[in-house]
């Protein structure tokens, strides 16, 4: 199966190890992977800010970059969710609407793809490490990503403890986190308290945005937690970057 990796801006720039892990896992799952080099941003910041013209320009770029593959796979529920909205971005009468619909239909969040399309079983990596999972909103509610990341983590030997507020928004929300920082941080605090109550010191999620926000807030607390993208935990320890939330500025 020939798949294209849509890396997402945040992974590309801030957490490239997640991109490397995605590449490795897709290959291990028997895929031929292409990474379109001219890919940049799916346009979500523009789309969610009401800038339809910019969102459209970037949407057409996505259509150009990701044509001609069996599947487009994204290590982010948020960006995968955006690809699913590309037909709406273009509008009902756009000449490339059908193309956008076809792209949306073959675009997957990566953990869902690995479990549902490839039935991928990672090797034993977890060694009984305990963690809790944060469901990021777009993945959960736009794409129904709920069980797939948990299945992969459990297959890899991690022990999952659920927090009561796993499905509550962490307060990142793209530009929301800098437009309304106080509300955003209050939401993070609630999430962090819930994660703390679950009794795991490692919080795992599928979107780097949420993780940066939560980790940055957690570092200001007396007992910071560690944060990782789910894919980081599906490759051997030596390939893992330093966990987020462990900074000491």
């Amino acid at each position: 199966m020939r798949v294209a990796l849509l890396v997402s801006c945040l992974v590309d720039g801030l957490r490239p190890s997640v991109g490397a892990a995605a590449l490795k896992l897709l290959r291990a799952a028997g895929c031929t992977v292409v990474v379109p080099r001219a890919q940049t941003c799916c346009g979500q910041p523009a789309w969610n800010s009401g800038d339809r013209a910019t969102a459209r320009t970037l949407a057409l770029r996505v259509l150009d970059q990701f044509a001609g593959v069996d599947a487009v796979v994204v290590p982010s529920g948020s960006c995968a969710g955006m690809v699913h909205q590309l037909p709406e971005v273009l509008g009902a009468s756009h000449p490339r609407r059908a193309e956008a619909e076809a792209l949306a239909a073959r675009c997957y969040e990566i953990t869902t793809f690995l479990v549902e399309q490839r039935d991928y079983h990672p090797g034993p990596l977890g060694q009984g490490q305990t963690l809790t999972y944060h469901d990021s909103c777009a993945g959960l509610r736009e794409l129904g990503v709920k069980t797939a990341p948990r299945i992969l983590l459990e297959r890899a030997g991690y022990i999952l403890v659920e927090m009561a507020q796993a499905e509550t928004c962490c307060g990142f929300g793209g530009t929301f986190c800098v437009k309304y920082p106080e509300i955003s941080v209050a939401m993070a605090d609630e999430k962090l308290a819930s994660a703390g109550q679950a009794g795991a010191s490692l919080v795992v999620g599928g979107d780097v945005g949420c993780l940066l926000h939560l980790a940055g807030r957690s570092e200001r607390s007396v007992a910071p937690l560690a944060f990782r993208h789910v894919l980081e935990l599906l490759v051997p320890e030596r390939e893992q970057p330093r966990a987020l939330g462990q900074g000491t500025p």
Binding site: V7, V11, D12, G13, L14, R15, P16, S17, V18, G19, A20, V35, R37, Q39, C177, V178, K179, P181, E182, V185, A188, L212, H213, A215, G216, R217, E219, R220, P241, R242, L244, G245, Q246, G247, T248, P249
Partner: peptide, 28 residues
């Protein structure tokens, strides 16, 4: 140190959060 307590122009983020530093370089 792995993250920033302050960033020029990034007050909205860093007033109440650290900014975790990028790993360095980009994936692409």
């Amino acid at each position: 140190r792995g993250s920033f307590r302050r960033l020029v122009g990034g007050q909205a983020w860093t007033a109440k959060r650290n900014f975790p530093a990028p790993e360095g370089g980009s994936f692409i």
